[in-house]
Simulated assay, not measured.
Amino acid sequence: MKLFLKTKDFSVSGEAFELYRDEGLDMLVTKPQPQNLGPYYESEDYISHTDAKSTLTDRLYQLVKAKNLKDKVQLIENQYVKSKSLLDLGAGTGDFLITAQNSGFRVTGIEPNAKARKLAEQKGVHLQESLKEVSGQKFQAITLWHVLEHLPNLEEQITTLANLLEEDGVLVIAVPNFKSFDAKHYKSYWAAFDVPRHLWHFSKTSIAKLFAPHQMEVVKIKPMWFDAFYVSMLSEKYKGNKLYLISAFFVGLWSNFRAIFTKEHSSLIYILKRKK
């Protein structure tokens, strides 16, 4: 693997990391990968583990999240799932599962972070700590909303997910896209690199190749339009731009416009099913 770029953990530790490109899979790998990632998530700034609304960034995130929850559930329902059994890996504080449950799904959630699990419990959602606790079960739909990039032992985790999925089930994966315009624009400041919490950085090619050995194929790819703005906003803040909202709006807008033609959006949702 060749060195792609050098960056650092802007949000928690300030430590330096490197991204290496796996040419065969067309993906990036974070190095070094800390043995204990727990401390790198211990921050009030890690928004998916909190329900914070203290800053403008927090409020914007929570506002968009509220709208996206229903869209995510509708996306799954559009795949004609039969049994409506759903597993959400990396469930955060449980809001997606609540929305899915209200739509008739039988839900199970996995969340390693104890703080996030506690917040979910206060909402009436009990989350499991790891996939080991659902071993042997089968689900019609499995979702990972910006989670696959966090998972250590990637190939082993993909095998586990494939084994948990019903034969006619659907796997929905949302991940950042390092080939987007905003990624190329911000380079080492691109917030979606989010090292070392993001261990892997995917392209369309890499997602297809990683799941192909499990007889799974990408049947549809959908954009996450808001991510270009949100990631650009964080990236501008990392650069120290006091006018980060204005700059981020125009970069996000241009990134989305370019993606209309290139199909390389800031983040992408992959819908995978078993090959027939």
Rank of each mutant, 00 (worst) to 15 (best):
N102E: 14
N102H: 09
F105W: 10
R106Y: 04
R106F: 01
R106N: 13
V107E: 06
V107K: 04
T108V: 14
T108G: 02
T108D: 04
T108F: 01
I110R: 02
I110E: 01
I110S: 02
E111P: 07
E111G: 05
P112K: 01
N113E: 05
N113D: 10
N113R: 00
A114I: 06
A114R: 06
A114G: 03
A114H: 02
A114L: 07
A114C: 02
K115C: 00
K115T: 09
K115W: 00
A116T: 06
A116S: 09
A116I: 07
A116L: 04
A116W: 01
A116G: 07
R117T: 05
K118M: 08
L119P: 00
L119H: 00
L119R: 04
L119Y: 00
A120G: 06
E121H: 06
E121L: 15
K123G: 03
K123I: 09
G124H: 08
V125K: 09
V125S: 06
V125L: 11
V125T: 09
V125R: 09
H126V: 14
H126N: 13
H126Q: 13
L127I: 07
L127G: 03
L127S: 04
Q128W: 04
E129G: 07
E129K: 15
E129P: 10
E129V: 14
S130C: 14
L131F: 01
L131V: 15
K132T: 14
S135M: 11
S135A: 15
S135N: 13
S135E: 15
S135P: 09
G136T: 11
Q137E: 15
Q137G: 08
Q137A: 13
K138Q: 15
K138D: 08
